[in-house]
Design a protein around this nucleic acid. Structure first.
Lengths: 204, 204
DNA sequence: CGATAATTAGAACGAACGTTCGATAAACTT
DNA sequence: AAGTTTATCGAACGTTCGTTCTAATTATCG
């Protein structure tokens, strides 16, 4: 007879206080990790910024790794979801690629720390955490790659995989230099980069 | 009277053994830091890989920070020097931009760990180390930006600063995905990326 | 109110870190 | 061969880290 372990019913976590605190920890962790890197960030710093005790963190997350995983999963899911919503409103190949760029640029502007952590700390994950995030990334990448493919006029010359990787490079690098006070609006950047990838800087 | 401190004459470091060991430490450090990140890499790991005792590292470098600085300075100086040599052999704007891409791709292929450390661990430096590396990077960036500017046909539409940053994004991202066993030769990538930035994926 | 669960706080753990120090060996100079 | 520099080593220091444990507090609800 299987031991009749009493099933612990998931606590009613509609409790808004719980989710508020959880979100504030995620936000604090993003800031600290974005500034110091994952290995350089300490749970103590995160706890202090979130206004909680050190051990309090472990009530919400079972380890530092899980905390990083939660940031990346949360951020990447939101990014993908946001893109799919944008794609519903457009039809042409160019518009769809434009939606990819707009989505990425605007999401970045509103979630700089989160996106930096996602771009910069992929390899800080390991085991199941790494695999699960990789799966999400792959799905997002495939979505973008198909849209890139629609926009390639000579598939013999340009492979959609590689072109997508070049594009992701340009997109993922912006956290290294973009400063809203010195640089143009994200809309301008999005237009420019789209035009470059479609027609280059030599086109009329 | 100023105290007549005996000037320690720099030891004759033409000694090839010394430089051999120093290089092997730099190489080991690049590998470890590329794999674990700067904060995650330990001096003990570097020492083990270099075949030296833990404290032996401190005979060659005065701190972990200086070790990272040495890697970045060494790598970036070599990269810039290599580019200037390539530029002597070409004349047209297109050829000059091609030289930038060729240089970056081939240097990357032969120094993957070094370049990854340079791209990924800029912000792990601080103080004077950070400023000195920034100066080298700025010089290199300026060189590339001028070459990019030569290739822009409508300066009103495309700003050489931003285009260069997009380009650096594509270049600096390759360490995240390039696998010599699965991907085309660097020469192919260089040709492709040049064509994209000049004429786009929609050109004939 | 009283009981049960949800949440926080404080102290402590062992492990690993960067760095230092003094002793020691090897290499070079005279 | 003696003396001096160059290079290596092992042990140790103080600090910080991620994590755990137990006790205390707060909220929830019959």
């Amino acid at each position: 007879m299987p031991s009749a372990v009493k099933e612990k019913p998931l606590p009613a976590r509609r409790n808004s206080q719980y989710n508020k605190k959880l979100s504030s920890i995620l936000k604090a962790a993003s800031e600290i990790i974005a500034r110091h890197g994952f290995e350089g960030a300490s749970i103590r710093q995160v706890a202090a910024k979130a206004g909680i005790g050190l051990s309090g963190i472990y009530y919400y997350f079972k380890s530092k790794d899980e905390l990083l995983f939660a940031i990346q999963e949360n951020t990447f899911s939101t990014l993908a979801e946001s893109l799919e919503k944008r794609l519903e409103a457009v039809s042409t190949a160019r518009e769809r690629l434009k939606a990819v760029l707009d989505n990425h640029f605007h999401f970045f502007l509103n979630n700089m720390d989160d996106l930096k952590v996602c771009v910069h700390e992929i390899e800080s994950l390991s085991g199941k955490y790494y695999k699960d995030i990789l799966k999400i990334r792959r799905k997002y990448f495939g979505l973008v790659r198909n849209i890139v493919a629609e926009n390639i006029s000579s598939p013999a010359e340009f492979n959609d995989d590689l072109v997508s990787l070049y594009l992701f490079g340009s997109l993922n690098w912006i956290y290294m230099w973009y400063d809203p006070r010195r640089n143009p609006d994200m809309g301008v950047l999005s237009d420019q980069l789209l035009e470059i990838f479609l027609h280059g800087i030599k086109a009329t």
